[in-house]
Amino acid sequence: MIRKIKSYLIFTPVFYRWLMFLMVPAGTIGLQWLIEPIDLFMTGYINVMIWVMVEIISDNWVFGGMAVAGGKQWEYVKTSKRGMPIVENALGVNMARQFLEGMIIFIAGWAFFSLRNGRGFSDVGELIIYVDMLLMAYFVIVAALSITRFFDSVLINTGTASLASILLVGGFALVAAWKYVMLVLLVILAAAVSVMGVKLIMWRVRESYYDRADKKEY
């Protein structure tokens, strides 16, 4: 496990880690302090918008372009027998970090709202919706990054983040309507996207050992 975390730490600059683990949760709480959300649904919405935008855009800084055709930037990693497992570990730990990050943001949001308003979730249904929002945002982030990593452009990341935010608004309407069904569905989707997200990018990185156009001809 230590080796996996080390792999992740090597791929991520210190400032990125500060941003994700400190500044983003602080930012969401700051925004809640300014906006004063009327309920936990609105709190969750603020959390998701900031989290999704920051996650997708900042990923370009760390893993941006890692699945670009040719994959020339992996030469050094490929000269080691441990290269591919290290990349895979870094991607896996980053995904775990993303989920942990979401949990921190959502728990901090709930705690701040509760402290400020003297009330938390009114019933289990509200809690489920709150969890659904977390799972949906996680699913959208991981799915979006599985696309943006095929390009090395911060503009594409920004555009995808904006589109993801709009899609999430529609998604939250579904969550509000079918919270229990969505909970089951989102748990499955979140697990599936976690596995597929790593596998897809690793497939592409491993493809860089081959010239796709001439693959059949050699």
Binding site: I10, Y76, V77, G83
Partner: peptide, 11 residues
């Protein structure tokens, strides 16, 4: 510095 750290992991 990162090149140093990743080299330590790779080799």
């Amino acid at each position: 510095t990162q090149v140093k750290e990743i080299s330590g992991l790779l080799f």
